[in-house]
Simulated assay, not measured.
Amino acid sequence: MAELRTDRLVLRRWRDSDLGPWAAMNADPLVREHLGEVLTREQSDASVARFEADFERRGYGWWAVEVRDTGAFVGFAGLDRVEDHMPFAGVEIGWRLARAAWGRGYATEAARAVLAYGFGTLGLAEILAVTTAANARSQAVMRRIGMRPAGSFDDPAAPEGPLRPNVLYRIARGEWG
């Protein structure tokens, strides 16, 4: 399976050594602010098992992200199929970083590598991105990587409250690069 490299990052398959830092990220209320409840260690570990199964089945998914110079695990980035309950279909790009990695441009750098893989290697025609309407940081990354707003909607799976209003961004292969 592909390992993606940027100037500062490596996007790679998951290792057992990632489980602890991943669980710590998922237990951080600020990291989970736009995602929902914090996760238990068991829920966090189960998510990595799903990520790896997706890679085996599809050849893409959520890569673990590490800093090249230090080897430190800082989060994830990748591609996934849009969930069935959403009012649209396609392949979605996403990222999540540990709070200590925020503000360094890692999300943008990782997302650009993921777009290159999605358009170049997988030959996708379009890539989508979704976040809560209140998640200005992720929307800024979406704009930096060339995505454009494509509407808003209420996530039917989210509870009433700030996680329900969402925005959709998109980028076509011809718009990228």
Rank of each mutant, 00 (worst) to 15 (best):
M1S: 11
M1F: 10
A2L: 15
L4G: 01
D7S: 14
L9M: 09
L9W: 08
L9R: 07
R15G: 14
D16T: 11
P21F: 00
P21L: 00
N26E: 13
L30V: 12
E33C: 14
H34L: 03
L35N: 11
T40N: 00
E42Q: 06
D45G: 11
R57L: 12
Y60Q: 02
G61R: 06
W62I: 13
W62V: 14
V67I: 13
R68Y: 12
T70A: 08
L79W: 02
D80Q: 15
E83W: 13
E83L: 14
H85M: 14
F88L: 05
G90W: 00
V91C: 11
R99C: 07
R99Q: 09
G103E: 06
G105K: 00
G105D: 01
Y106G: 05
E109C: 03
A110L: 04
A113R: 03
L115D: 05
A116K: 12
F119S: 05
G123W: 03
G123V: 04
L124Y: 08
A125P: 13
A125V: 15
A125F: 14
I127V: 03
L128K: 01
A129V: 12
T131C: 07
A134W: 15
A136N: 10
R137T: 09
Q139Y: 11
Q139I: 09
A140Y: 09
M142W: 04
I145S: 01
G146P: 03
R148V: 14
P165F: 02
V167R: 04
I171Y: 03
W176S: 09
